[in-house]
Design a protein around this nucleic acid. Structure first.
Length: 928
DNA sequence: GACAAGAGATACGTC
DNA sequence: GACGTATCTCTTGTCA
């Protein structure tokens, strides 16, 4: 006996979507896709499977017990499409005409009904097939209950226990519920755990077996996953509840009523004629059958809908939280669009008479070097601002901008902006050289709170309790359809832009006293603000690349890489994606079984990082090849092939972008490309530096870098006599350190000792732990500990300095650099030793690294000013933390060398000399 | 269901 | 320790 149970809505939806693009419409304009699709499936099953018994289950109208328990379950479900709503009664008529019983129980969904009936029928000896594409039915399969899943192309897939377990990698069908509870199911409105999909859910179940066990062991999870699971624990439990199909619905399976009968073809013909389903009419052959008695509803009456509701009544509906933020709509403001020449001239003159103004530019791109100006906005008083639209035509645009250049270039007038470097670079292309004192609100906030975000919207919401018009309101949500700023109607863009200038001014008024309170006005006005002009020039100048050489390297390396790839496949005996660390791990540890014990990453795959592979190198020839492959691949994809892509077509050079507000310590960072991580250590990597060349043959590449600036700063800050003495005497600091640690004369220091001392020196600067040092040197932890103890014995002042730094951090909540740049360390009093240790190392490291960053910034500003004053054509082009690089014009070599070294070495007076080394050559590598 | 975009993880380059 | 980038893998949203 073969019972087919059909989930009507699941099939109807499926048919509807399948035909959505190309719906079936009859001559009355009715969309019959869903009906057609449903009949098709039904006919197909009857013919193909020849069931002895059959029934169709529908979801009832009105709420089910799930809705009652979960308000959102209802709220989130989209309206049933109109077409489907209209189709359902007709489909029901058709099913009746087929003499197939309809199962529908109030308050229970079709899957609960099918679940209940399946279990009952199984007991009576039926083979049950649940016809539905929904995966949640997987939980019901058993020896005699199967899923019958329609697939595209009219095919079907029958799934029993084995198939379900295989498909979802589970060990019991009950886990289907846990799986869905975790990964969610959008078609069934089960939320699941955000960020957890099929793969992660499977992994978790493999490990923990069930949701309950998982939630009891969340402490064993790591990283983002742990956060997500713990934060969504309730939702996960609830999702499991939602995904659980009930098998005790008040309904009694009546085999007799489900016996397959002949359809009422008269009635069917009537309906099909109405719908214009000629194919189905033609399919029906033979004489008219006598009308069969209308099938009785098998469905029993559901429980009375009374007090039971209360049982699942949702808790107090959460009151939506309305934003308490002010906005343009709630704020009195006067924003004006200025679009006549007369008014522009007037505004230009007006701005010139002020002491300061805030301004902002709107552009059609995010790269300031290529973006076109769309408009400018200005503000001098809160809640008042002007917007000046700028046409796309470059010449016309320059004419408009010219009205404002006297004000923008005025050396006395302060310009206020949010990320003002961007605007200055944009305006530079229109012939404006912005000058005078600056106030960048983004940098102000960076100094006040380096670890927070510094976007304008965030700042406005946090400090002004004001929500600016979101950019997405103008240009649409992120994605390929996003508009360009120039396509936005003037009225909208004017409001938005004027608001930007206005908000910037308000932020300045808020931050200015804060800077004073924090005692960092000098750092802000004397270092960071003047540095903006330096960075503008560096970014605009750019660096020339030897593309011919790079192309040649690219070809050579690509060939080498291809060879390596083949060799690796041969040695490994399988083909796999070498770029996938996951697959590399599987090949090494599972396929080749090179190593028994394998370190796992936090997601459970094998770790294949360089140091681990390095240790395995001797075990199998493929390991060496893999390391070689990775090295080459990195160079090729990150530098050799990537750099030429970033060349600006107008200048023929690459223009990195320096970010002044990213790092926690005060260093700059560089993007597009990151020129601060160009290889230098190994031979092949150095080749890349050769491709960085001066502008032309008359120029040279000049490079100057601070020698041991961080250790010198540490010597200065700690006042440690021995270290100060070592620097004053001009000794090699690492050898001197080794001699002290090992208690031997400098002459007897071996290479290995020096290497360890050097790592220890850097370890202290970078604030790494005993463990980190051991890892880095690949020595036992005990030896690492000894090394550090020896270090502190040699330099007792350093130990004191470190303790003092931590004490200050605990007392004040922050540490600061020589120039008062602050780093806040709220975790310094944490009860978690790991978290606290991290903060403690930062307390030691931040003043050192941050002071070094401050010092080179001072040097940069001074060098830039000297170049200007002395009218040099040579340009500073790169900064790499402790190194400055220049494109030096003919005849200026000596002058540049003199200025650069002088300003670098005298940027500040410390207890120890500040030394800068320099060199020059045809390229960056030679200059070192 | 197929596809694209986004987010996370891993690895690795520099200081 | 800090940073940015490339790549793979997995999730999520969109369009059917």
């Amino acid at each position: 006996m073969k019972l087919f149970l059909i989930d009507a809505y699941a099939l109807i939806y499926r048919s509807y979507y399948a035909f959505l693009k190309n719906p079936r419409i009859n001559s009355k304009g009715m969309n019959t896709s869903a009906i057609f699709g449903f009949i098709n499936s039904l006919e197909d099953v009857l013919k193909r499977e020849n069931p002895t018994h059959i029934a169709v289950a529908f979801d009832p109208k009105g709420p089910t017990f799930r809705h009652e328990a979960y308000e959102l379950y209802k709220a989130q479900r989209e309206e049933t499409p109109e077409v489907i709503r209209q189709s359902v009664p007709i489909i029901k008529d058709i099913i009746e005409a087929y003499n197939i019983p309809i199962l529908e129980v109030p308050r229970f969904e079709a899957d609960d009904v099918i679940g209940t009936v399946s279990k009952q029928a199984e007991k009576e000896g039926f083979e049950v097939y649940m016809m539905t594409p929904d995966k949640d039915y997987g939980q019901l399969v058993s020896e005699h209950i199967f899923m019958y899943r329609p697939k595209f192309g009219g095919d079907y897939e029958v799934m029993g226990v084995k198939e379900v377990l295989n498909k979802y990698s589970l060990t019991s069908v009950d886990q289907v519920i846990d799986l869905l509870g975790l990964m969610g199911d959008s078609s069934d409105n089960i939320p699941g755990c955000p960020g957890v999909g099929e793969k992660t859910a499977q992994k978790l179940l493999e490990e923990y077996g069930s949701i309950e066990n998982l939630l009891e062991n969340t402490d064993k999870l790591k990283g983002a996953l742990q956060k997500r699971v713990t934060e969504n624990a309730e939702q996960i439990r609830f999702s499991k509840f939602l995904a659980t199909i009930k098998t005790d619905v008040p309904i009694q399976f009546d085999a007799m009523k489900c016996v397959r009968e002949k359809p009422n073809e008269t009635r069917l013909t009537e309906i099909y004629t109405e719908l214009e389903f000629r194919t189905f009419i033609n399919k029906m052959t033979g004489e008219e059958k006598k009308p069969a008695p209308a099938p009785q509803k098998v469905a029993a009456k559901g429980p009375v809908q009374g007090n039971l509701f209360d049982l699942f009544a949702p808790e107090e509906p959460s009151v939506p939280k309305y934003s308490t933020l002010a906005s343009l709509k709630t704020t009195l403001h006067i924003y004006k669009t200025v679009d006549s020449k007369e008014e522009m001239a007037k505004l230009g003159r007006f701005l010139e008479d002020q002491d300061f103004f805030a301004f902002d530019t709107e552009t059609d791109g995010i790269d300031p070097l290529t973006a076109g100006l769309v408009g400018m906005s200005f503000a001098v008083k809160e809640n008042e601002a002007w917007y000046v639209p700028v046409p796309a035509d470059k010449e016309e645009a320059a004419k408009i901008v010219a009205h404002f250049s006297p004000a923008l270039q005025n050396r006395k007038l302060q310009k206020i902006g949010q990320n003002i470097k961007f605007d200055i670079i944009v305006l530079r292309k229109y012939g404006v050289r912005v000058a005078g004192p600056l106030f960048d609100t983004m940098i102000a906030h960076y100094l006040l709170n380096p670890e927070l975000r510094h976007g304008m919207d965030y700042l406005a919401e946090t400090y002004l309790k004001y929500k600016p018009v979101p950019i997405s309101q103008l240009i649409g949500p992120k994605g390929k359809n996003q508009l360009c700023m120039r396509d936005v109607p003037l009225a909208q863009i004017a409001e938005y832009a004027a608001e930007d200038a206005d908000v910037t001014l308000k932020l300045k008024n808020f931050f200015a006293p804060e800077l004073k309170k924090a005692g960092i006005e000098s750092l802000f006005f004397d270092i960071e603000m003047p540095l903006i002009y330096v960075l503008v020039e560096m970014e605009a100048t750019g660096v020339k690349l030897d593309t011919v050489a790079l192309k040649q390297s690219s070809e050579e390396l690509t060939a080498a890489l291809n060879n390596l790839e083949k060799e690796i496949y041969e040695l490994a005996g399988v083909k796999f994606n070498i770029n996938s660390s996951k697959q590399v791990g599987e090949v090494l540890f599972e396929h080749l079984k090179i190593e028994e014990k394998a370190k796992k990453t936090k997601t459970g795959s094998y770790s294949t990082s360089e140091d681990i592979l390095e240790k395995m190198r001797s075990k199998h020839p493929v390991v060496g090849k893999l390391l070689e492959y990775r090295g080459l691949k990195k160079l090729l994809s990150t530098y050799i092939d990537a750099l030429p892509e970033l060349i600006n077509p107008e200048t023929g050079k690459i223009h990195t972008s320096f970010n002044q507000t990213v790092t926690a310590t005060g260093r700059l960072s560089s993007t597009n490309p990151n020129l601060q991580n160009i290889p230098i250590r190994d031979e092949l990597g150095r080749e890349i530096r050769k491709a960085f060349i001066p502008d032309n043959e008359d120029c040279t590449f000049f490079s100057a870098d601070y020698s041991q600036i961080e250790l010198r700063i540490m010597a200065h800050l700690s006042q440690d006599e021995h270290m100060i003495e070592a620097f004053r005497s001009g000794a090699d600091i690492h050898s001197a350190t080794a001699a002290k640690i090992y208690g031997i004369p400098v002459e007897e220091v071996t290479g290995d000792m020096r290497r360890k001392a050097k790592t220890a020196n850097f370890g202290i600067i970078y604030g790494i732990s005993v463990f980190g040092l051991a890892e880095r040197l690949n020595i036992p932890r005990a030896e690492s500990k000894e090394l550090i103890e020896g270090y502190f014995k040699s330099y007792p002042g350093i130990r004191d300095y470190m303790d003092e730094s931590i004490r200050i951090a605990k007392e004040k909540g922050y540490v600061e650099t020589i120039f008062k740049r602050k780093r806040y360390l709220p975790d310094i009093n944490s009860h978690n030793a790991i978290v606290r240790g991290y903060a403690e190392r930062n307390a030691i490291n931040a003043p050192i690294q941050g002071s070094a960053a401050d010092i080179i910034k001072v040097a940069m500003v001074r060098i830039y000013n000297r170049f200007e004053e002395e009218g040099l054509k040579s340009k500073m082009i790169l900064q790499v933390h402790d190194e400055l690089n220049f494109n030096v014009c003919q005849d200026e070599q000596e002058k540049v060398r003199q200025i650069v070294l002088e300003e670098m070495e005298n940027a500040i007076q410390l207890q120890v000399p500040l030394i800068a080394d320099c060199g020059e050559g045809k390229n960056w590598l030679e200059a070192h």
